[in-house]
Amino acid sequence: MKRRILAAAAGAALALTAVTACGDSGSGSGSGSGSITLGFSQVGAESGWRTANTKSIKEEAAAAGIDLKFADAQQKQENQIAAIRSFIKQKVDVIAFSPVVVTGWDAVLKEAKAAGIPVVLTDRAVDSDASMYVTFLGSDFVEEGKKSGQWLVDQYKDSSEPVNIVQLEGTVGAAPAIDRKKGFEEVIKSKPNLKVIASQSGEFTRAKGKEVMQALLKAHKDIDVLYAHNDDMGLGAIQAIEEAGKKPGEDIKIITVDAVRDGMQALADGKINFIVECNPLLGGQLMEIVKKVHEDQPVERRIVTEETVFDQEAAKKALPSRKY
């Protein structure tokens, strides 16, 4: 008896985790007559950024009167392929998805093409042939890196004193980490006095950002600028800088990417100097594209998300209405 209760408890706990893991799936309703049906497969719910992304897509679809079938892939490619196949079977009008990984999409994209359903990529790219999808809507990470670099170049345009920069990179191998580094380093090359003296991975998290910055502060006495590939690492690093007895934003200038709420707060408080936005609210743009594609209008092959940059003044203004 005791054993049976335990087994039942084990089963219940497993069921619970299954529910938490896919709490978002299956929100679409049956295909309405006349309206456009969009099948969307999301990566997962791994960050606040992603949650805001999902929310934006759901809200904008409702506002545009588009029937959304939403599937959460829980960061697994096989789930995503299964979701896309089921969209094809249900004969949705347009399929959109944020690919979990870059490779391995040829087969399922061919199936969609054979069924005559246009595919839109959002947020992340794939390495399949470009004829397989209509367009790719997402941020340009290289451009984000360039914007960060450009602000720095402008800050020091009149000085030729050496400026020592440390860089907190994202997770090794992740596209945003590679591209934000590339764009940044490309731009600051134009000023030889801007020099990256150390570059380490903070794995996109606050805890690692703090730990790495703490070590870098000990190893390099003369850090002038910190460039972090996302807000969270920057926020961790700020604490390390404060503990070292320096003032973030003044003794060490800080540039980050993303513009999530906590980051914007730090920017408004003067602890960060500049944030390049990486906008998750691409729902509106996506629905525009879906409508155009459905009416067989031509769309650009690459559409960059509308993104801006924030300095401290802009952050103070934007903060009250910040959604995420």
């Binding site: 985790t17 938490t20 893991a21 719910a45 960050s47 606040g48 606050r206 906590d262």
Partner: peptide
């Protein structure tokens, strides 16, 4: 392994998928 995989889900459930500051 059950809790290793499921536990992340529980943590997500508590935080609502966001970073709680």
């Amino acid at each position: 392994l059950i809790l290793m995989v499921g536990g992340r889900g529980i943590a997500q459930l508590i935080t609502g998928g966001q970073i709680i500051t």
